[in-house]
């Protein structure tokens, strides 16, 4: 699958920089205490303008070169599935707790990567459970707990 021209990414960054510049007066309050003091908006304006100019320059150059990015359908699908799995797992943490959700992510990803053996998946989840428990205890880290667990 061919995802658009490479210049698209530069345009997205340029839009981000432009929005940053436009939003600066609204999202950065200024308090002037000393005569010579530079405003907190100075650096955002400087870097925002620099980024805008560079990304537009890049967009023009990529457009001229007609650079394209190649991502195969298999690669894109598998990465997308993995990412969605992780996102779902992460947003389940406040509900089912850290250990259960991360075990879920671990098992599903291992299955996706081609390990279909039920026994090894059970061993893996048990191993992960034991590892996290010992690890959290050893380094005195608190568990992210969910509503259910």
């Amino acid at each position: 699958m061919r995802i658009g021209p490479s210049s698209m990414s530069a345009v997205v960054i340029a839009i981000f920089a432009a929005l940053f510049l436009l939003g600066t007066p609204n999202y950065i309050p200024v308090i002037t205490a000393y005569e010579n003091e530079a405003s907190p908006r100075l650096f955002p304006y400087m870097i925002g303008t620099l980024l805008l100019c560079l990304s537009l320059l890049l967009a023009l150059r990529e457009l001229k070169n007609r650079t394209r990015i190649n991502v195969t359908k298999v690669e894109f699908t598998k990465v997308a599935i993995s990412f969605v799995m992780v996102c779902v797992g992460v947003f389940l943490i406040p509900v089912i707790g850290f250990i259960v959700s991360t075990t879920l992510i671990l098992v599903l990803l291992t299955y996706l990567l081609g390990n279909k053996s039920i026994l090894s998946l059970i061993c893996l989840s048990a191993g992960w459970f034991a590892f996290t428990y010992i690890f959290f205890k050893l380094f005195q880290i608190t568990f992210p707990q969910g509503v259910l667990i």
């Binding site: 920089a17 940053f20 939003g23 950065i28 907190p40 955002p44 870097i47 925002g48 980024l51 560079l54």
Partner: peptide
């Protein structure tokens, strides 16, 4: 050029949060 753009983007992202001198919140 892409590297420089990425570096500038990193600097821009570092602006988010408390201003180092005045302490005012920026893009929070």
């Amino acid at each position: 050029l892409k590297g420089i753009v990425a570096g500038a983007l990193g600097i821009l992202l570092s602006i988010i949060g408390m201003d180092p001198l005045q302490g005012s919140a920026r893009y929070t």
